[in-house]
């Protein structure tokens, strides 16, 4: 069991602004996230990746306040965070086990072999654990990415587009894993697949042009949409409604 926490929210940001190049990609975001699975939705270029990078402490906010796990020393904090970048760069000559163990070493963990075995089993790669990464398919590489993110049993888990490259069956498995992890962890998943959010998330954040335009449950998002809005499911219509897409068939 984990010790009782001394903070109200795992992730707390107030009026956060983060620059990506010259552009202010995240422009005044205020949010408070606790345990559970939070889906981060938004069109391409909305600032999802920049926001997640700032939460992963690899980008310094231009202004605003960011409190992770109640605010602690950077190194201590990073031991409790798991992060899967959008472009999951990896070493092709490493085996699955070697790669996850190397990340575990970077996370300053103890008892690495046992933790690696557990993480590799959770993503269903135990039978490929000693194969080199260059022999794995795209979907399997994604699962290695998820394994390295959860190897330290993080309290904050940040996943940037984790379902890209997974086939439908793997995505179902992944949602199950997310729900399981979300019971005692604060998980933030960015995705552009609205149905992933509907199925696995307790909470949806909608980002548009660097601003948070919606926060609520998937049902609340679905309720925003009407038959007038484009989309194949209630939640897609809600997404279109909040982003203010007009219904113009055929247009991009």
């Amino acid at each position: 069991m984990t010790a009782p926490t001394t903070y109200a929210w795992e992730i707390e940001a107030r009026d956060l602004r983060v620059r990506a190049g010259r552009k202010m990609a995240v422009d005044g975001v205020t949010l408070a996230l606790g345990r559970g699975v939070h889906g981060l939705l938004g069109p391409n270029g909305a600032g999802k990746t920049t926001l997640i990078r700032a939460l992963a402490t690899v980008l310094k906010p231009a202004s605003g306040e960011l409190n992770l796990l109640g605010g602690m020393e950077l190194r201590e904090l990073r031991r409790r965070v798991g992060y899967l970048p959008q472009e999951f760069g990896h070493y092709r000559r490493f085996t699955v086990r070697e790669f996850v163990a190397y990340v575990a070493w970077l996370k300053e963990m103890r008892d690495i072999p046992a933790a690696v075995q557990r993480a590799v089993e959770r993503v269903g790669l135990a039978d490929r654990a000693d194969d080199r990464l260059k022999t794995l398919s795209g979907g399997m590489i994604r699962r290695v990415g998820i394994a390295q993110a959860i190897v330290n049993d993080p309290e904050v888990l940040l996943l940037d587009e984790p379902t890209a490259g997974l086939d439908p069956a793997q995505r179902l498995k992944f949602r199950e894993l997310l729900t399981e992890i979300g019971t005692d962890t604060c998980v933030l998943v960015s995705t552009h697949l609205v149905e992933d959010v509907a199925a696995a998330c307790t909470d949806v954040l909608l980002l548009s042009q660097g601003k948070l335009v919606f926060q609520g449950t998937p049902d609340q998002l679905a309720a925003k949409g009407t038959g007038q809005h484009p989309g194949d499911s209630p939640i897609e219509r809600g997404y279109s409604a909040v982003l203010g897409f007009p219904h113009r068939p055929g247009s991009w």
Binding site: A56, T57, V58, L74, R75, E76, R78, R79, V81, Y83, P85, E87, F88, G89, H90, Y91, V103, W105, L106, K107, E108, Q148
Partner: peptide, 15 residues
């Protein structure tokens, strides 16, 4: 040249 640079930069050992 280092494909895992972003992963590495987010870990406690980075620095």
């Amino acid at each position: 040249l280092d494909p895992a640079h972003e992963l590495t930069a987010a870990t406690p050992r980075a620095g």
